[in-house]
């Protein structure tokens, strides 16, 4: 995952993105450009709009203002078919895994290939088994149902599903949340490896600093709907930004006040 310094068109570009739910402003002017092959991690506390940012890019939510482009195409105004074509470039690892509980593990992994691309089941199954092997799961796990797996294994299956169609862009929504530290590190390694293998552009959101340091080429910190700091992981310890300092050291005292009352 090398950071590209040559001026190429960014893979994903957000310019002045605003999103509010009723009176509650969640995104208040986000500007971010992710270069091809780069891995950007957005950090920030709960409820600062990290998930909303991803959903705006995917078109699951519609920003009120600003533009979101993927490969130079505006995704906000995009209609049905164009959006489906655009989404084929994406893979996403959801926070809770979001595995389809009515299907077996391999059917989950192969879902995008079968439904999204019309591949034959037998062929898709082989790819699914191969992807499961990449995340360290045996072929026999493919015939289990998702509920029969532990949390860490479900995360791996979800990761296999996200990379199954060899996407150009992969989103990771809190990939290590709810895992023990060792399993979290295993998942981090898998993410680094998988992103490298498929040569994808990655955008992750997390509040796990160990994870962010490991998988990021650049880290951006989201606070109150704005990106208040962007830089490389090696600079984050001397960012000179007191908000960033408070967050990465996990201190209750500091400029960031937790809103205990909603």
């Amino acid at each position: 995952m090398s950071h590209m310094s040559t001026p190429v068109e960014p893979k994903i570009k957000l310019a002045d993105v605003h999103k509010a739910f009723g009176p509650k402003v969640v995104l208040d002017g986000i500007d971010l450009a992710v270069q091809p092959g780069e891995s950007v991690v957005i950090i920030g506390g709960s409820g600062t709009g990290k998930s909303v940012t991803l959903k705006c890019i995917l078109g699951l939510l519609r920003p009120e203002q600003g533009s979101v482009t993927v490969d130079g195409q505006d995704v906000v105004a995009m209609g049905g078919r164009a959006r489906e074509a655009m989404l084929r470039k994406f893979g996403m690892l959801f926070q809770g895994g979001a595995l389809f509980d009515s299907m077996t593990v391999w059917e989950n992994v192969a879902f995008g290939l079968i439904q999204g691309r019309g591949m034959k089941r037998a062929e898709a199954r082989e790819i699914a088994i191969d992807k499961l092997a990449q995340v360290g799961l045996a072929a026999s796990a493919g015939d289990l149902m998702p509920v029969e797996l532990s949390g860490g294994m479900q995360k791996r299956v979800a990761l296999a599903r996200a990379i199954a169609s060899s996407p150009e862009i992969i989103f990771f929504d809190e990939p290590t949340t709810g895992l023990d530290p060792i399993m979290a590190d295993v998942i981090n390694d898998l993410i680094v490896q998988c992103v490298k293998n498929v040569g994808a552009t990655a955008l992750s959101i997390t509040h796990d600093m160990a994870s962010a340091r490991k998988i990021a080429d650049r880290i951006a910190m989201l606070y109150k709907g704005r990106l208040i700091w962007i830089g490389s992981p090696k600079d984050i310890d001397h960012s000179g930004n007191e908000f960033v300092d408070q967050f990465i050291h996990g201190r209750a005292e500091g400029p960031i006040k937790m809103e205990l009352r909603a």
Partner: peptide, 8 residues
């Protein structure tokens, strides 16, 4: 949401 991201 996962369905949507899997082009379905």
């Amino acid at each position: 949401d996962a369905l949507v991201t899997l082009s379905t």
